[in-house]
Design a protein around this nucleic acid. Structure first.
Lengths: 333, 333
DNA sequence: TTGTAAGCGTTATCAC
DNA sequence: GTGATAACGCTTACAA
């Protein structure tokens, strides 16, 4: 195996004619080195192509600089956006993102968390699924910080970042009512994640508060195709809805396409639609979808700020507001 | 700082009443441990919540298990899909993905590669941008493998995975010609990446071979919005194109939407469009876009297979075929 | 099969 | 400011 080993601090020290501790200090932000020593070390390092070994550094400092991002379906527009925001912001505080893909099973989240522990990640951010309590406890006990995004669990220790889904759903109902809609429906996937269910609940409650029954249809994963199928079920009812709040934009896009191309319905004149997430496609002129924007950058910022602070402060639950983006899929916006 | 340290192999050894090397061996796949010893070690490890420290293991073995994925605009459908395929397949060969976000500048790619070196990544996969030769040499010299996807550079050492863009472009031209189109255009972004330019070149060449002049328009980043702008430029020409090959599906979606909603053109009867990538949106019924599919899973598989093999074999250049997916944006598919 | 001991590349501690 | 020296948690000869 020709796998030549990387150059070490010792080699740099030899070449620069100093001790290896001098080399170490040169690359440690707050350390005290004379200008002359630093110059010689940097020069030697440059010439040799030396780079501090973060594996070894992490071992010593007991702080790897690694943050694990645990996510499923990362090729979905909203997830991809969140992932991008997180990786970028992590980089800006000198942390690095490790990405672990899970399927929807909680078991695979546990596995991912184990992997995070093996690499001594400073923190893990969970975007999908729900880990077992025993494993999160293990993380926390080992000083690994935990952030749960849109998981809504009431658990001690991790930082919880959630949207005010119920409130958003209530506002969606009011907007649709103001548009003059009569028959309300909620389009959901069968994923039953906390945030999806909160939107559903919130919408039903708002209906109930106005004495209006809301039809709910759930199907499959949270995808475009599921939206189309839900549309079929909803739009063939004898009392056809003229207002549909969708649990996500992906569902909304599928639903709108089915409504237009299969049922020849015009949006918004015959059917008003509101989505959730504000994915890029929502703004495409084929959809022009009124929707709630997830404050992706804010979410990432809160997560990163919390896990980057040196001392563990009390982890609390952050509730963020989803902003209603008015576009053309609801009458009279 | 209450940061309690993780449990170490020594603690497990003490509890199990064996030596620490026995613990090490228990967690090393091919090592020889007696059934009895293994049982006791595993039991103790379980009880204590022990997990092998991969930082330390990487230090010793000179193999971290980390693979760096260097990418820009990872929230773009095609990139996200490739990223997902890569992370998944890496996991299946017991490697773990580190994701580094870059902007389009080559400088930021160099920075990313430096980061990869610091973490002693076993390999780096570059999805965007082009690193400086000096830095790739540094990686290679240190035994770090390099994969360049759709970068098309003729360089020694890294594994190069490319599509046959020119050939695909040629086929696109023929398909459009068979559809009875008369006036041909190519819609591109101003990103000028190797693959984008190869598609442009291939399409022009095909035109030239048939004695037909192809109009080319380039604008901005490779995005939906750019597609809409290119559409405006192309569709206001005095000799309006009735066949447009787009360098990417994102451009194609923007272009189609503009064509339909701003210029009231019907696709495919008045305008035929072909895209590239086969992103999910291409199959949405609002677009129903005929396009070339990037063999994302194949690309990921080739990359992962090459970097997972124990001995460095000669890195060659793999040329993969893009498959033409017939949908409804070209007449007579 | 097992334990002992050396070593991986760092950083932290401590004299000087 | 600088240089020895001792960790850090692991793997791997080597000897038993």
């Amino acid at each position: 195996m020709s796998r030549k080993v990387f150059v070490s601090a010792k080699e740099v020290a030899d070449r620069a004619g100093v001790s290896r501790s001098a080399v170490s200090r040169t690359f440690t932000p707050g350390a005290s080195v004379s200008e002359e020593t630093r110059r010689r070390v940097v020069e030697a390092a440059e010439a040799l192509g030396y780079h501090v070994n973060h594996l070894a550094r992490g071992l010593m400092r007991n702080e790897s600089g690694i943050v694990c991002l645990i996510v499923s379906e990362l090729d979905t527009p909203y997830r991809a956006r969140l992932l991008k925001a997180l990786t970028q912001q992590l980089q800006s505080v000198a942390k690095i993102a490790m990405v672990i893909n899970t399927d929807r099973s909680d078991d695979s989240v546990d596995l991912a968390l184990r992997q995070a522990i093996r690499y001594r990640a400073d923190a893990s951010i969970i975007l999908s699924g729900m880990p077992d309590k025993s494993i999160t406890d293990l993380c926390l006990k080992n000083g690994q910080r935990l952030v749960l995004i849109n998981r809504d669990e009431d658990r001690e220790g991790p930082l919880l970042i959630n949207l005010n889904d119920r409130e958003a759903a209530r506002r969606a109902f009011i907007a649709l009512q103001r548009a003059g809609c009569q028959t309300f429906a909620f389009a959901n996937s069968a994923a039953m994640t906390p945030s999806l269910m909160a939107r559903e609940e919130g919408f039903r409650e708002a209906g109930r508060a106005h004495g209006i029954e809301v039809v709910v249809e759930r199907y499959g994963p949270t995808s475009y195709r599921s939206g189309a199928i839900v549309a079929q079920r909803l739009l063939t009812r004898e009392k056809r809805p003229d207002a549909i709040f969708c649990a996500s934009d992906l569902l909304a896009c599928g639903l709108m396409d089915a409504a237009r191309h299969q049922f020849n319905l015009a949006v918004p004149s015959e059917l008003c639609v509101i989505g959730f997430d504000d994915i890029e496609q929502a703004s495409w002129s084929s959809y022009n979808l009124t929707t709630f924007a997830q404050p992706v950058e804010r979410i990432a910022a809160e997560a990163v700020a919390w896990l980057a602070q040196p001392s563990q402060t009390e982890a609390n639950s952050h509730k963020l507001e989803a902003e209603l983006i008015w576009r053309g899929s609801v009458r009279g916006g």
